[in-house]
Amino acid sequence: MFKATIFVTLKESVLDPQGVAVKNSLHSLGLENVHEVRIGKRLEVFLDQVDRKQAEAQVQMMCEKLLANPVMENYRYELEEVS
């Protein structure tokens, strides 16, 4: 079995209002040196698959088709074999 940890983040050019709000809150906690916050998603996907190549292809496909919206999001993933 494989475990894919997928990170979906907003593209750099896209404003992240939640990130801005969190940044402002961090400032109000006295952390004035925080100059940017970007919020993203982390997904854990467990795959019944023995072949790493095929697992990788499946993860790639699910990211492109569903898990990330290419209009405004990027994704990357880590794949590890688990028992």
């Binding site: 404003l15 209002p17 939640q18 709000a21 919206n69 209009v71 405004m72």
Partner: peptide, 9 residues
Amino acid sequence: GAMRRNDHL
């Protein structure tokens, strides 16, 4: 295009 959360959240 795509939809984002309202700017005021």
